[in-house]
């Protein structure tokens, strides 16, 4: 937990979409994470078998797959919820062993859960800093008195960096719309992330307009230098913002390619294990 006088860690330098990095960014690894040969078994069920996946800085990586394909298991291993049975995860060039999302956060990788993990009765400001509160200096800080002005300044900076508009930082999250809540969760993850954000179904519970807002937000987050991995079933919308696609099927990687000319039917084909033509015909029917 961040103690009194703590500061928000500096964000990585801006990287443009083409991948041109500043000199300072070159100090960091090109990859947010590189996972090699991950395997995870639950009882007799092999959920993940020999999955290798990586995420570069400034990249939006879309992770697709049918229900039970292993998307959530992979994500949970990447954010420290599950420990892989075998394989290794390298973050910012260093092999790490994570046992909690807090560990992942220490390595610069944050998660936006599908349920957002926001406290509905708390304000935007309080949610943004929950677990990372900034305390007043001096004797008041020793009593745990919060420095709300410092927290507000930094929250405003984080929100403005992502062009997020909210009515106020002091409004309770339960009074925000679904899109605004998602934006708060993304801004919070962005604020505490040094290199990468994992997002689980960020548009699942949203309407069309709000989904578009969130997708723009995801792209902006990647453009600001972070790597973003998005798990989603909303293939067309995510295709518009993704740089690379990974499709999981039966716990293994079925497709791992830059978006390039990939179309929805290619992804569906990889998800269900059919040839592209067959998948396209299936969609037409």
């Amino acid at each position: 937990m961040t103690e009194a006088g703590s500061t928000i860690r500096a964000r990585v330098p801006v990287i443009d979409r083409q991948g041109a990095r500043s000199d300072k960014a070159a100090e960091h690894s090109e990859y947010v994470f590189r996972a090699r040969s991950l395997t995870k078994t639950f009882g007799h069920v092999k959920a993940i078998t020999d999955v290798s996946i990586d995420l570069k800085r400034g990249e939006v990586l879309a992770l697709f797959g049918d229900n039970g394909a292993g998307k959530s298991t992979v994500t949970k291993m990447l954010c420290g919820v599950y420990t892989p049975d075998s394989g290794e995860i390298e973050i910012n060039g260093t092999t790490v062993a994570m046992r909690s999302t807090r560990d992942a956060e220490r390595h610069g990788v944050t998660v936006v859960h599908q349920d957002l993990a926001l406290a509905p009765h708390l304000s935007v400001l309080e949610n943004m800093f929950l677990g990372h509160e900034i305390l007043r200096r001096g004797i008041l800080g020793s009593f745990g008195v919060l420095s709300r002005s410092d927290m507000a300044t930094r929250s405003n900076e984080a929100l403005q960096r992502l062009s997020i508009t909210l009515p106020s930082l002091s409004v309770a999250v339960q009074n925000l719309s679904g899109g605004q809540r998602q934006a708060v969760a993304v801004a919070r993850a962005s604020m505490w992330s040094r290199s990468g954000i994992l997002m689980d179904e960020p548009t699942a519970a949203l309407g069309t307009i709000q989904s578009d807002i969130v997708c723009t937000l995801i792209r902006d987050t990647a453009n600001s230098g972070a790597g973003v991995m998005v798990i989603s079933h909303d293939i067309p919308r995510i295709l518009e913002i993704a740089d690379r696609i990974v499709v999981l099927r039966h716990g293994g990687v079925a497709l791992n390619e830059p978006v390039g000319g990939l179309q929805r039917r290619d992804i569906v084909a990889a998800m269900v294990g059919l040839s592209t033509n067959t998948a396209g015909e299936g969609e037409k029917k």
Partner: peptide, 9 residues
Amino acid sequence: IASVAAPQD
């Protein structure tokens, strides 16, 4: 805390 911006959603 000052508003970040007007509500748009």
